[in-house]
Simulated assay, not measured.
Amino acid sequence: MIRIIFTQLILFLLPFLVYAGYLFLTNKMHRKAWIDAPRYWLVIAGLVVSVFGFLFMSQINNNPLGGTYVPAHMENGKLIPGQIKAPE
């Protein structure tokens, strides 16, 4: 769960980091540039990037829909990781 939260936080902050990189490369890295920053648009861009990140991660997830979670367990002295079994 912490990985998902951390990933979404990074995706949300990505537009702010790009803006900071732009200010750094154009030598405008001073306080007035941050005060006059287009914060509204940076927040909207961060939310859009974060939503697309959620959608992308849901599409690359190869767990079957309607499956049953089988937790990790020991079988013949060997650890079998948790998995989602497809419905029958």
Rank of each mutant, 00 (worst) to 15 (best):
L17R: 00
V70F: 04
L23H: 02
I2F: 09
G46H: 01
G46W: 06
G67E: 09
L11R: 05
F24W: 10
P87T: 01
K78S: 10
F54C: 09
M29L: 15
A37I: 03
I2H: 03
P71K: 13
E88K: 15
A72L: 03
L9R: 00
V48K: 04
V70N: 09
L13K: 02
L55T: 05
G77H: 12
T26K: 07
R3D: 08
P64F: 10
M29C: 04
S58H: 13
Q83V: 03
Y19L: 05
V49P: 00
M29S: 11
M74W: 07
I10Q: 02
K32Q: 14
I60V: 15
L17D: 01
Y19R: 09
F16Q: 01
H73T: 05
R39I: 07
S58F: 12
G21R: 02
L17H: 00
T26G: 01
Y19E: 08
M29N: 12
G82E: 14
F16S: 01
L11S: 13
E88I: 02
A45S: 15
Y40L: 14
R31A: 10
I5T: 10
L42V: 05
P71G: 08
H73P: 05
A86T: 07
Y19I: 02
F12W: 10
L11H: 07
H30D: 14
L14H: 01
R3Q: 06
K32Y: 07
R39S: 05
D36T: 10
L25N: 10
G46L: 03
M1S: 11
E75S: 11
P87K: 13
F56M: 13
L65T: 08
T68I: 09
L14W: 02
G77C: 11
T7A: 13
P15R: 07
H73G: 06
R31P: 00
M29D: 11
I35W: 08
Q8Y: 15
L13W: 01
K32L: 14
K85G: 00
L25C: 08
V48A: 15
A33W: 02
L17N: 01
I2K: 04
V48F: 15
Y19S: 05
N62A: 12
N76A: 14
P15H: 03
L79F: 08
V18T: 09
L55Q: 12
P38V: 03
L25R: 06
M29R: 01
Q59A: 15
E88P: 07
L14F: 14
P64N: 04
L25Q: 11
S58I: 03
A72E: 15
V51C: 05
M29Q: 04
Q83C: 00
S58L: 12
